[in-house]
């Protein structure tokens, strides 16, 4: 059920990208799609009552492999979050240039970006 909600968030983002005609809304929708997939990855890694995969100074010999959540998706999502930030920065730069060329964030007023 939680997976389904996560995919709903993804599909809402996809809807926004395909239907909205405003550059800023498109950027937000893409960021949300990225967030939904990151969340999906982490949901797959969760173990019931799982602990954080960090050894503590107090218990250096704790059995993490029996209790901790999966650390690999966390490492992957860390990468994916930063990639999403990079894409957002580039898109905002493009959107600002386009704003000053056409005086609007509206893609229907631009020449080629239709559909």
């Amino acid at each position: 059920m939680i997976y389904a909600l996560c995919i709903v968030l993804f599909l809402l983002g996809l809807y926004g990208v395909l239907v909205k005609k405003n550059l800023i809304k498109i950027i937000i929708s893409l960021a949300m799609m990225n967030n939904a997939i990151n969340l999906f990855f982490i949901l797959l890694a969760y173990r019931k009552n799982g602990v954080v995969p960090i050894l503590s100074f107090l218990q250096p010999n704790a059995n993490l492999y029996e209790t901790a959540v999966d650390p690999l998706p966390q490492a992957l999502v860390l990468t994916s979050v930063v990639i999403g930030l990079g894409v957002t920065a580039l898109m905002v730069a493009l959107a600002i240039r386009l704003y000053y060329v056409y005086g609007t964030f509206d893609i229907t007023k631009m020449r080629k970006l239709r559909g």
Binding site: V82, L85, A89, A93, I96, Y100
Partner: peptide
């Protein structure tokens, strides 16, 4: 990361059409 993101921000906010 710190200098890269700061330079993105500063280029964005200094942009003068």
């Amino acid at each position: 990361v710190s200098t890269g993101l700061y330079s993105v921000y500063i280029y964005l906010s200094h942009y003068d059409p």
